[in-house]
């Protein structure tokens, strides 16, 4: 009995240490963004700022067009999410409910494309976008991401769990496929669509390499690219860097805390395909 207790205490200790290590950078980032410069570089390090320097945020907005970065990021992440969700929805519907020649081949091609790492095609996609004259445009930023094989595949598993008799009954009642999609399929898989939307928006928000490639004008930058540029420009002003990092992270964290259940469930469901 005594050994059991020591084991439990030890387990809890490990758990709390790792939980602390996970959370600490976030706390430190938020606190550091409210320190003055001396405090951020003091030895020993300051943990709680003596006086909360909210003015750091004003300085960040004054030094770099973060408002613009926010606008760009929300815009591109929203467009990508809505359009790719729409395309995946139609595609997944066809793959689940319609019968046609070549379905098997499409499925195999899509599945093998899931294996291709984005980094392997991102550079040639840059080439395509450059040829189209779309560098430094919103269209260029979103175009390659307007469809997602991954989300289509994900929705397929969702739609597959809806009984086919419902589709057949709808057809007998004279509904068109379009009616079926919007009046039955979408309402019935609302939670799945919502989760996919959330995950897509988050990954759009955090995108980095693609916007780094296709934009070089300050006004077209997304948050993360603006943040790295700011980190190099602001150089030694660590407190401003941390304030800017907080600006990038906190909106998504809020979204995450509100929808944590859906998000985690959605990610766990992904692995079913494994």
């Amino acid at each position: 009995m005594k050994r059991f207790r020591i084991g439990t205490i030890f387990s809890y200790l490990i758990l709390f240490i790792f939980a602390f290590i996970t959370v600490f950078p976030f706390i430190y980032m938020i606190l550091g963004g409210l320190m003055n410069f001396q405090e951020t570089t003091s030895i020993p390090p300051t943990l709680i700022p003596h006086h909360f320097e909210w003015g750091n945020y004003a300085k960040v907005f004054a030094k770099a067009p973060f408002a613009r970065y926010f606008f760009n990021t929300v815009l591109t992440a929203s467009i990508t999410t809505v359009v790719s969700l729409f395309n995946s929805l139609l595609g997944a519907f066809a793959m689940v409910n319609l019968r046609f020649k070549g379905k098997g081949i499409i499925q195999i091609v899509m599945l093998s494309l899931l294996m291709v790492p984005g980094e392997a095609i991102i550079f040639t996609n840059y080439n395509t976008i450059a040829h189209m004259g779309l560098l430094n445009t919103y269209v260029g930023l979103v175009l390659p991401f307007l469809t997602s094989i991954f989300y289509m595949y994900y929705l397929q598993s969702y739609f597959g769990s809806i009984s086919e008799t419902i589709y057949k009954a709808a057809m007998i009642d004279g509904a068109s496929d379009w009616d079926y999609i919007w009046k039955i399929l979408v309402p019935m898989s609302k939670s799945g669509l919502f989760t996919v939307g959330l995950l897509s928006f988050i990954s759009g928000w955090n995108s980095f390499l693609w916007p780094l490639l296709v934009t070089n004008e300050d006004t077209m930058r997304l948050l993360n690219n603006g943040l790295t540029a700011f980190a190099s420009d602001a150089g030694s002003e660590t407190q401003l860097q941390l304030a800017a990092a907080t600006l990038t992270v906190v909106p998504i964290l809020i979204l995450y805390f509100i929808f944590r259940k859906q998000i985690i469930k959605g990610v766990v469901r992904n692995d079913l395909k494994g």
Partner: peptide, 30 residues
């Protein structure tokens, strides 16, 4: 605990990388 441990998955690698650069600093890092 799940919610806590999952935080890094949804947050920007760039932003957290900047925080780590700071925590890892040889002179004044935590």
């Amino acid at each position: 605990f799940e919610t806590t441990f999952f935080m890094p998955y949804v947050t920007s690698t760039i932003a957290i990388g900047i925080v780590f650069r700071y925590i890892f600093n040889g002179d004044y890092g935590m």
